[in-house]
Simulated assay, not measured.
Amino acid sequence: MKLRAMAKINLGLDVVKKREDGYHEVRMIMQTIHMYDQIELHKSDIVGIHIKTNLPYLPTGENNLVYRAAKLLMDEYHITKGLDINLVKFIPVAAGLGGGSSDAAAVLVGVNRMFGLGLSQKQLEDKGAKIGADVPYCILRGTALAEGIGEVLTPLCLMPPCYILVAKPGINVSTRYVYKNLDLEKVKNHPDIDGMITAISKGSLTGVTSRMSNVLENVTAGEYPIIHEIETKMIELGALSAMMSGSGPSVFGIFEDEKKAQRAYRKLKHTSLVRQIFLTKPFGRRGK
Rank of each mutant, 00 (worst) to 15 (best):
K2R: 15
R4E: 13
K8V: 06
L13S: 02
L13A: 05
V15H: 07
K17L: 12
E20Y: 00
D21E: 02
D21V: 04
G22K: 07
V26G: 03
V26Q: 00
M30L: 15
T32S: 15
T32M: 00
T32E: 12
H34E: 15
I46C: 05
I46H: 12
Y57F: 14
L58G: 04
P59F: 11
M74A: 10
M74K: 10
E76H: 13
I79L: 14
T80G: 12
I85Q: 00
A94E: 14
G99K: 03
A105I: 05
R113H: 13
K122W: 07
K122G: 06
Q123I: 00
D126I: 12
A133K: 08
P136A: 10
Y137M: 01
Y137T: 01
C138T: 05
R141S: 14
R141W: 09
A144V: 04
A146K: 01
V152E: 13
P160V: 08
P169T: 09
N172M: 12
R176A: 14
E185P: 00
K188L: 15
H190M: 13
D192E: 11
A199M: 09
I200P: 03
G203V: 08
G207Q: 05
S213F: 13
N214Q: 09
V219F: 09
A221S: 15
E223Y: 12
P225Q: 08
I226E: 08
T232L: 07
E236P: 02
E236L: 06
G238K: 02
G238Q: 01
M244S: 08
M244K: 06
G246C: 10
P249W: 06
S250I: 05
G253Y: 05
D257H: 12
K259A: 14
Q262I: 11
Y265K: 10
L268V: 06
T271E: 09
Q276F: 09
L279V: 01
F283S: 03
G284M: 06
R285I: 14
K288L: 14
